[in-house]
Design a protein around this nucleic acid. Structure first.
Length: 472
RNA sequence: GGCUCGAUAGCCAAGUGGUAAGGCAGAGGUCUGCAAAACCUCCAUUCCCCGGUUCAAAUCCGGGUCGAGCCUCCA
C-alpha cells in the first residue's frame, strides 16, 4: 500500500501505527450553508479511500468534525462570525443554524451513498479538550495568553512551521477568527482562544475569560481525543493546507510531543467550467441541485474517474460522458443479475486478472481512474459471455468492487427506471400493432408506427421473440 | 509578487527511466427486415517549448511559455 504524503511530497509505503488498522481524520464542513459539489468531491474521495482500506483488509476508524463554531466573515463585517451573521439574517439561534445545515450535510452525504464516518463530532462538543490543549501549549511555552483574554500560538517557537507549504514565516499571515486584536507578540501568531465580544453568542468560560476557540484547535483536539497523540492519516481539501493544516501540525506536535499524523492526504479541488467554485463567486452548485438531474452513481463515477489529487473541472459534457458510462456499467450488471444472483470464487483467468489489477491500482495511492478502466473492461467481458459460471464470478467483482468499494448503487437504479417506465395503454396498443405488422412482415407499416411512437417519446427495442417499449 | 501543483490525441484522462491504459466523439465491419444495444477493427512514431543527464526520458535535471490553486473563510 503506497500513499502520497503531503508532508514529504512523495508517495510512501503506508505503515500503520497499529498493524492492520487505520486511524484517519478528515476535516469536515463548516455548517453555515448548503453542501456543494466541492463537498461532494472531497467526501466521495475519502469515502472511496476508506472503503478501499476496508476492502484491503484494514480495520478503519474514520473521524470527521462538524465545525459549528463560526469563522470570521471575509468582508467588513468586523467581529461577527459566519454562523452568527447568518443567524441574524434568519432570526435564528446560531445553534439552530448550525444544526439545520448539519442535517442538510448528512442528508446530502447519504444521498450520494457516502458512508458516515465512524465518529462525527461537533467542535462545540470538545470545548473542554480544546481548553486543555490550549493550556498544555501555554504550560509548555509555545503559547501565551494576553491581558485582553486571547491566547496565541507563537510561531517562532516552532521552527518547522510551514513545512507543508514552504512559505516564509514573514508571509504567514494569521488565520484567526477575529482580526481586531493587536495584542500579538508577532503578527503571524495564530489564535488558539479568542475573547468573546458581547454580541458573540457562542461563548464558553475558560481560564482566560469568556471566549471561543480559534479555528485550528478543534481538529487537533478531536484528533487527539479519538485517535490518540499519533495517528495514521489526516485528510482534507487542498484549500485547507494553508493556514489550517500548517497550524495543526504546529500546535499538534508541540502539544502532543510528536507529530499527530504520519501522513497528510489532500484531495484537489473542483472548478465549474474552469472557474473556482465559491460561495462568494455565486457559481456554486449544491449537491441537492446536482442530484435533480443526475443519479448519485453518475456523480460518484464522474468524481472517481479523476485521481483524487487531480483537479476536476465540472462541465456538462463531462457529466454526460459519466452518465453514459454509468448506464453502460448498469446494463452489464443488469445482464449478470438477470441471469444469476449467485456469487462464485474467482477461478477464471479473466476475472482474477481484472480483480488483481483493481487491487494493484487501489494499493497505488488509490488510483481510481485505473480501477474504472478495469471496471469497463469487466463490462466488456460480461457483454461478451453467456457462461453462467463466469457470470457468477463477475457477480463477485460487482459486489466487492462496484458496490462495496466504489459505492455504485444498482438495485435502486433499476427499480427507479422500472417505476418511471409505466407506459400508458394507448402506447402499448400502438406498440403491439407495430409488433403484429412486423410479424406479418409489413415493414413499411412497422416503421411508420415506430416513427409515430418515437415522436410521442417512446422507443421500441426488439428482443429475441419479443419487444420492449420504453419512455425516452 | 511569494509558494504549490499541472501541461499527454478532436474532447476527458491514466502512466513518473525501458519504448503511449481506458472512456467519449469519429471511421469501417458483424449481428438485426430496420433501429437500438452489444461485439470486432482503425484512430498520438509521440507526450507545451529549448537545452542537458542516460544505452534508453512523456517520465530525471536546468531554463522558458501557458494554466490552476493557495497566500483572507472555504472541501
Amino acid at each position: 500500500m503506497r500513499i502520497y504524503n503531503s508532508i514529504t511530497r512523495k508517495k510512501e509505503e503506508f505503515i500503520p501505527v497499529i498493524p492492520g488498522q487505520v486511524g484517519i481524520y478528515v476535516c469536515g464542513p463548516t455548517v453555515y450553508g448548503p453542501a456543494t459539489l466541492g463537498h461532494a468531491r472531497t467526501y466521495t474521495n475519502f469515502d472511496v479511500i476508506v472503503r478501499a482500506f476496508r476492502f484491503l483488509g484494514y480495520k478503519v476508524k474514520y473521524v470527521q468534525n462538524i465545525t459549528d463554531v463560526g469563522h470570521l466573515v471575509g468582508d467588513a463585517d468586523e467581529g461577527e462570525d459566519k454562523i452568527a451573521k447568518r443567524a441574524k439574517l434568519e432570526q435564528l439561534d446560531p445553534y439552530e443554524v448550525a444544526y439545520k445545515w448539519e442535517l442538510e450535510y448528512f442528508n446530502a452525504m447519504r444521498a450520494l451513498n457516502i458512508e458516515p464516518p465512524s465518529i462525527s463530532c461537533r467542535a462545540t462538543g470538545v470545548i473542554p479538550e480544546i481548553i486543555e490543549m490550549v493550556q498544555t501549549l501555554i504550560d509548555k511555552g509555545f503559547a501565551y495568553a494576553t491581558p485582553q483574554g486571547n491566547v496565541y500560538f507563537s510561531i517562532r517557537k516552532y521552527p518547522k512551521y510551514n513545512q507543508l507549504t514552504n512559505r516564509k514565516i514573514e508571509e504567514a499571515l494569521s488565520g484567526e477568527r477575529i482580526e481586531i486584536a493587536d495584542d500579538k507578540q508577532a503578527p503571524e501568531d495564530f489564535a488558539l482562544w479568542k475573547k468573546a465580544e458581547p454580541e458573540h453568542l457562542m461563548r464558553w468560560n475558560s481560564p482566560w475569560g469568556v471566549g471561543f476557540p480559534g479555528w485550528h484547535v478543534e481538529c487537533s483536539a478531536m484528533g487527539k481525543k479519538f485517535l490518540g497523540d499519533n495517528f495514521d492519516i489526516h485528510g482534507g481539501g487542498l484549500d485547507n493546507i494553508f493556514p489550517h493544516h500548517e497550524c495543526e501540525l504546529a500546535q499538534g506536535e508541540c502539544a502532543n510531543g510528536v507529530l499527530p499524523m504520519n501522513y497528510f492526504m489532500h484531495n484537489n479541488l473542483l472548478t465549474v467550467d474552469g472557474v473556482k467554485m465559491g460561495k462568494s463567486l455565486g457559481n456554486f452548485i449544491t449537491i441537492a441541485k446536482a442530484l435533480e438531474d443526475n443519479s448519485a452513481s453518475t456523480l460518484r463515477l464522474f468524481i472517481i474517474q479523476f485521481h483524487y489529487r487531480s483537479p476536476i473541472d465540472f462541465t456538462n459534457d463531462g457529466l454526460v460522458q459519466a452518465a453514459k458510462q454509468f448506464d453502460k456499467i448498469a446494463s452489464a450488471v443488469a445482464k449478470v443479475r438477470g441471469k444469476t444472483n449467485e456469487i462464485a470464487e474467482l477461478k477464471s483467468e479473466i476475472t482474477s486478472d481484472i480483480f488483481a489489477k483493481i487491487k494493484v491500482a487501489l494499493e497505488d495511492d488509490f488510483n481510481t481512474p485505473v480501477v474504472i478502466s478495469e471496471v469497463l473492461h469487466a463490462v466488456k467481458e460480461i457483454n461478451k459471455t453467456d457462461d453462467i459460471q463466469l457470470l457468477k464470478e463477475f457477480n463477485y467483482i460487482i459486489q466487492k468492487i462496484f458496490e462495496e468499494v466504489l459505492g455504485f448503487e444498482f438495485e435502486v437504479q433499476t427499480e427507479k427506471v422500472a417505476h418511471e417506465n409505466v407506459v400508458p395503454d394507448n402506447i402499448l396498443e400502438l406498440a403491439e400493432q407495430r409488433w403484429q405488422a412486423k410479424q406479418g412482415r409489413d415493414f413499411a407499416r412497422a416503421d411508420e408506427l415506430r416513427k409515430q411512437l418515437d415522436e410521442i417519446g417512446y422507443v421500441i427495442v426488439d428482443e429475441k421473440g419479443s419487444y420492449k417499449v420504453e419512455k425516452k
